[in-house]
């Protein structure tokens, strides 16, 4: 992209990281501000190095949860990068994204959304429509829209992101399961309960296949066990397999653990909603044991 952070700024950045990681913001902030002043004197305000320095200082504020201050600095950095690097530069897309994140952290989803959309347009133009970074941007956009209740758009963005992740990174990539979970939460809001249920089952089945290689009578994903227990409880033929074995199933299944745990709980909640209490308890027990 034609710009490289000069060595002295890298050193300064690393030093600032050290101070910030120790919580010594009273050192980090003045250090950044002095460097900014010096840079502006030597290079002028509209220089990519100044944008870099503004970015570094913005991170220091961000890490203190001072999102408004961080956004102010990033806005300035954005303006400089647009002027000096070009409006479609990847650094401009990244800055737009990060501004959107800062607005999102403050609950300003309506303001964040157009920034995120602009970042998406640039990424699609530069990287192509099916790049994993485009999927990341779609995911951020979906999250912002979901917090505004725009579920039709959310569904579209998550579906696109999912297609990209599956095609480019494969079905076992952690982003696939995370996006399916998010899409399922959107489906729930839309009343598409069956679609949500299917996604949760897909996640658990994929985790199962990754660990055990197949689905057959001897190796069933946990949700199949849960539904069988539900059926048996209705016919009063109790399955003697103790719950702890399902915790064992889960422990053996280390893929995407937090996501799989969330999925177990979400599908359990869905079962509960459907009155399938035995099935719900099976998954809830499994989720609890694996936490």
């Amino acid at each position: 992209g034609g710009y490289e952070i000069p060595a002295r700024l890298r050193t300064l950045h690393n030093l600032v990281i050290q101070y910030a990681s120790q919580g010594r913001y009273e050192v980090a902030v003045p250090l950044c501000k002095q460097a900014l002043e010096d840079l502006e004197k030597t290079s002028g305000h509209d220089h990519p190095d100044v944008a870099t320095m503004l970015n570094i200082l913005a991170l220091v504020y961000r890490d203190q949860n001072k999102y408004k201050e961080a956004a102010h600095l990033l806005n300035d950095a954005l303006s400089i990068r647009e002027k000096t690097l070009g409006k479609d530069h990847p650094a401009v897309a990244a800055t737009l994204n990060n501004l959107a994140v800062l607005y999102g952290k403050r609950g300003k989803y309506r303001e964040a959304e157009p920034l995120c959309k602009r970042a998406l347009e640039i990424r699609e133009k530069v990287l192509g429509k099916d790049h994993p970074d485009v999927a990341k941007q779609l995911n951020n956009l979906a999250l912002l829209c979901q917090n505004q209740g725009k579920y039709d758009e959310v569904e579209y963005y998550y579906c696109r992101a999912l297609e990209i992740y599956q095609a480019r990174l494969g079905p076992d990539d952690p982003n696939v399961a995370k996006t399916k979970n998010n899409l399922a939460s959107c489906y729930l809001k839309q009343g598409k309960f069956k679609a949500a249920e299917q996604l949760y089952k897909d996640i658990l089945t994929q985790a199962h296949v990754k660990e055990f290689g197949s689905v057959d009578d001897d190796h069933k994903p946990i949700w199949m066990h849960a539904e069988e227990r539900e059926e048996m409880s209705k016919t009063s033929h109790n399955d003697s397999t103790p719950y702890s074995e399902y915790g064992g199933w889960y422990k053996a299944c280390r893929v995407n653990s937090p996501t799989v745990n969330t999925t177990l709980r979400n599908l359990g909640a869905l079962y509960r909603r459907q009155g399938k209490l035995e099935a719900a308890e099976t998954l809830e027990e499994c989720a609890m044991r694996s936490r």
Binding site: I5, N55, A100, K136, N140, L143, N147
Partner: peptide, 20 residues
């Protein structure tokens, strides 16, 4: 509200402007 907060936490930062 909790779900909104969870989604806020999922927003992904882009570090590429400061990677080298």
């Amino acid at each position: 509200d909790q779900q909104n907060v969870n989604r806020q936490q999922q927003l992904e930062w882009d570090d590429s402007t400061l990677t080298y």
